[in-house]
């Protein structure tokens, strides 16, 4: 049974300001959730808290393994993966970058190599396996970062604006890889994006975050095309400032 994820009263306070304010939400297992909202609405913070990178000020992140609660520790962290907005590759070859998560999990060398090459093929980067990760373009780096995440076969995948400022070719390849993962139905994906076309194309659900709270949530097409809340509508039409 795959892992499921929910937030209970999740609050994060930075410098006296609540970036996330008592957020309660259960993400649907195996679905793609696009998290949208203006800048500063708490999207990236939400991802960092849910992925256990940062601790909440208050509230909890709950994991269920089937129906059983799973402790929020390293074993759960190893069932998730994260792709950051900025390039986050290590100063080594592309192949070793993608093997990193597998090496951490103690997988044998030969197996690591095969899995990493397969992950690189999914983002059309296998020909650059021997290049240093730091010499790649922004789009190439992000594709390798996605391959590194895919290689560990995460049950929950966090994508923090993975296609921001990228060339259309890389956006297409990343979109395709996420689509394939979604169709597999085994990975819960949380995708923070400002790209509404991408959100509509990839997401099953859309969560609209505003001032640290979920204002609206629902089926992707419904939220994007027929938002119920006035703030969602104003955000989608570009009238709501962050």
């Amino acid at each position: 049974m795959t892992l499921s994820l929910s937030a209970a009263g999740l609050t994060k306070i930075y410098d006296g300001r609540a970036v996330l304010d008592g957020l309660d939400f259960a993400f649907q297992r195996g679905k793609v959730h696009a998290v949208i909202g203006p800048n500063g609405s708490g999207k990236s913070t939400l991802l960092r808290l849910l992925s256990l990178l940062d601790p909440p000020t208050r509230g909890t992140v709950l994991f269920l393994d089937g129906e059983e609660p799973a402790p929020a520790d390293i074993s759960v962290r190893r069932r998730m993966a994260f792709v950051f907005q900025r390039p986050s590759l290590f100063n080594t070859t592309v192949l070793k970058n993608v093997e990193a998560g597998l090496a951490i999990r103690g997988r044998p060398k030969r197996e690591r190599n095969d899995v990493a090459l397969d992950a690189l093929r999914r983002v059309e980067m296998e020909k650059m396996a021997d290049r240093n990760g730091r010499t790649l373009s922004g789009g190439e780096s992000q594709r390798v970062a996605l391959a590194r995440a895919l290689a560990v076969e995460p049950e929950i995948l966090f994508l923090d604006e993975p296609t921001a400022n990228l060339d259309p070719h890389s956006v297409r390849i990343i979109g395709k890889a996420i689509e394939k993962l979604r169709d597999g139905g085994r990975t819960t994906i949380l995708l923070v994006t400002h790209n509404m076309f991408l959100a509509q194309r990839l997401a099953d659900r859309v969560v609209f975050l505003f001032e640290g709270r979920i204002v609206e949530e629902g089926e992707a097409a419904a939220v994007i095309e027929r938002p119920r809340d006035e703030r969602t509508w104003r955000f989608l039409t570009g009238e709501l400032a962050g």
Partner: peptide
């Protein structure tokens, strides 16, 4: 961000330090 990436890949404290 590289340190975050190491942690997000499930590294233990000692693995993260080594990396």
């Amino acid at each position: 961000i590289v340190k975050d990436a190491i942690r997000s890949l499930g590294a233990t404290t000692s693995q993260a330090a080594r990396l």
